[in-house]
Structure formats: C-alpha cells, structure tokens
Lab assay of single mutants.
Amino acid sequence: NITNLCPFDEVFNATRFASVYAWNRKRISNCVADYSVLYNLAPFFTFKCYGVSPTKLNDLCFTNVYADSFVIRGDEVRQIAPGQTGNIADYNYKLPDDFTGCVIAWNSNKLDSKVSGNYNYLYRLFRKSNLKPFERDISTEIYQAGNKPCNGVAGFNCYFPLRSYSFRPTYGVGHQPYRVVVLSFELLHAPATVCGPKKST
C-alpha cells in the first residue's frame, strides 16, 4: 500500500533546468501520483496529453512515469509533440509517434532571462542524422558540413554543433524561455507502482 506522493514538485520547481540537447530525465515510481497538483503548480502555457485524457490521469496506474525536463524558446514548444519536425524535434528531443503522456510548458522569462542575455541554455544546431525517439546526444564533436574532414577544428564548413540561446527579458514571447516537462507513461507487463490517489488504497 503506497502512500508517499510522487515528487513532481522537485521536477517542476527545480531551480535550474537542463539545456534541451542534454535534457534531464527523472524516473518516478512507487508513489501516489496526484496530477491535479500539477494544474495548480504554475499558470501553464501548455498542458497537452496524448493517448490519455488529462482529467482521467488520477484514475490510472502505470509501471513507471518518466519526467523529462529542459528549456526551449516559446515558438519551439509546438515541436514537443508526436510527429513534429524542426531543429528541436530533429536534433535535441524527439517524441515517438505513439507517445503516451503529457507535455507541460510554461513561460520562464522571469527566471531564465537576463538583461545582458542568459547564454547558459544550449541547443544542438547541427547533426548528421535525426534523433530516434527519446535519444539523447550530448556530443560536442565538430560538425563537418563540407567534404573536407574537420579534424576537430572549427572553421570553414566545420561547425561547433551547439548554439546558445541568449534569453533577454525584452524579447518577444516566441523568443522567451519556456520550461518544459514531458511526462511519459510506461505500461509494462509488470506491477503498477505509480497510481492516482483513488487507485492507491
């Protein structure tokens, strides 16, 4: 009989979030998941669920729940959905087409922007091929755009693959930082360890 609440607040209220290319994953298990708490945590810009209804979450049980978190800019949030393409979905964080879970995003301009520009958040701009779903690539190998090998040196047709967002508070919403948490629900042929409040007794 599990009584402890799932530590969603640790994920959502973390002081620092990860850069999207090096997104963070927390496995959540053996706890009571009260998803209604999430609705009250922040004024969400996005709370979209796929393959599951957000209002039914509190009635369900899962084997595992994974919470992935990272920062992107406002106009990239739409890429965090099944079947999307674009720089983020292709080279940084890719959801599977049959994704079961929820994408939660909110504006973090007050936390993640600086007047002089916050350069701490990076994204991958160049990659030889698209990522597979939930693949994480943290390599910093020089990207070869031409025929000549780069031998690890940046220059003509040889690019450092990561680029930094420079978040400034005066930017338009599309270029402001957004914190994203992706909850993916895993149903294996194994005992369910993460249940809503109704199912945990």
Rank of each mutant, 00 (worst) to 15 (best):
V32W: 06
T55V: 11
T3P: 04
N109Y: 15
N118K: 15
G83Q: 10
V194Q: 08
S53N: 00
N4D: 09
S200I: 02
K198I: 05
Y39A: 02
Y35V: 05
N64W: 03
V37F: 08
N24Q: 13
A105V: 14
S108T: 11
F160A: 06
Y39R: 01
Q144R: 12
F156D: 09
N151A: 13
T3N: 04
V153R: 00
L187W: 03
T15R: 07
A154W: 14
R78P: 04
A18G: 13
A145V: 02
K48V: 13
L125S: 12
K114L: 15
F156T: 05
P197Y: 00
T193F: 08
T201Q: 11
P149Q: 05
A192S: 08
A33G: 13
Y66F: 08
K56N: 02
I28W: 02
I104W: 12
P191Y: 09
Y35G: 13
V32T: 02
V173N: 00
Q84E: 04
D98E: 05
K114G: 15
N151T: 13
F156A: 02
R16M: 08
A42Y: 09
I28M: 06
K110C: 15
T85Q: 03
F160C: 13
S200V: 01
P43Q: 11
V115E: 15
N87D: 10
F62T: 04
Y66W: 03
V194R: 12
A33Y: 06
S184M: 14
E186S: 11
V37M: 03
H189G: 02
V52I: 01
N130K: 07
S29H: 08
V37D: 07
S29D: 07
V173H: 00
R73N: 13
G152H: 14
N40D: 06
T170M: 14
D75S: 04
F44I: 02
Y119D: 02
L188M: 07
N4R: 12
N13M: 11
Y119G: 00
A192W: 03
R73Q: 06
P7G: 12
N4M: 06
E141Q: 01
N64C: 09
V115S: 15
L122D: 13
A18Q: 13
D59Y: 13
R27A: 06
V52C: 12
R78S: 00
F160T: 09
I142P: 13
G196S: 04
G155T: 03
N147K: 05
L188F: 01
Y119N: 05
R27T: 00
S184V: 12
T85A: 09
L188Q: 03
P43N: 13
S129P: 08
R163S: 08
P191A: 10
S200M: 08
N40A: 00
A192R: 04
S53Q: 07
A145R: 00
G196H: 05
S164F: 14
F160L: 08
N87P: 02
F62P: 12
V153P: 14
Y66L: 05
A190D: 05
L188T: 05
Y66V: 01
T85K: 02
A154V: 00
N30P: 14
K199G: 05
I2T: 03
A14E: 13
A22S: 10
K26R: 06
S200R: 04
F45Q: 02
N120H: 01
T193R: 09
Y39L: 05
V180I: 10
P7M: 12
R168T: 09
L131I: 02
S36G: 05
R16K: 05
K114S: 15
S200Y: 07
A192G: 02
T201P: 04
L95I: 05
T193A: 03
N1D: 07
E10A: 07
T140H: 06
P54I: 08
Y66M: 06
N87G: 12
V194L: 02
K110M: 14
V153L: 09
K132V: 11
F44V: 03
L125Y: 04
T15H: 08
T201R: 03
V194W: 06
S129F: 07
E10R: 11
A192C: 04
R16E: 07
P149M: 13
V32E: 13
N1K: 10
T63H: 05
L111D: 09
Q84K: 08
N109T: 15
V115K: 15
N13G: 11
S116A: 03
V115T: 15
P7I: 14
D98Q: 12
A154P: 00
A22D: 00
A67V: 10
P54R: 00
H189K: 08
L188H: 01
R27S: 10
S200L: 03
I142W: 14
L60M: 03
A154K: 12
G83H: 04
I138C: 09
P54K: 09
F126H: 02
Y39C: 07
N118A: 15
P197H: 04
P191H: 01
V37P: 08
G152K: 12
S139T: 03
R78C: 02
Y143F: 10
K198V: 06
I142F: 13
G152S: 13
S116L: 15
N109H: 14
T55E: 10
V103I: 14
E76D: 14
Y66N: 10
D97I: 13
I2H: 06
A190K: 12
L125T: 02
L125P: 01
K56V: 13
P169G: 15
N120E: 07
P197D: 03
P197E: 05
A18H: 06
S200A: 08
Y119L: 11
G155E: 13
N40P: 10
T3Q: 01
D59S: 01
A154Q: 00
T15D: 06
L111W: 05
T193V: 08
T46E: 02
F45E: 03
F126T: 13
K114V: 15
S139G: 11
F160N: 02
S53C: 11
A67C: 11
K128V: 13
D9Y: 02
P197K: 10
V65F: 05
Y123R: 04
T15P: 06
L5I: 11
S184G: 04
N109M: 11
K198L: 12
N58Y: 08
A192I: 10
E186N: 02
K198A: 09
N64L: 10
P169K: 15
N64P: 01
Y35L: 02
K148G: 13
N1T: 05
F156W: 02
S29A: 11
L5V: 10
L125M: 08
V52T: 05
S129G: 07
P169R: 15
H189Q: 03
S166A: 05
T140V: 04
S113T: 13
Y91M: 13
P54L: 00
T201H: 10
S53D: 00
G83A: 12
D9N: 11
V115A: 15
V194I: 04
F62M: 08
G196K: 12
N130Q: 05
T63E: 11
V37G: 02
A154H: 07
R27H: 12
K198S: 10
V32Y: 07
T140K: 08
R16W: 12
F160P: 00
Y119P: 04
D9E: 08
F44P: 03
L125W: 01
S166G: 00
F156R: 13
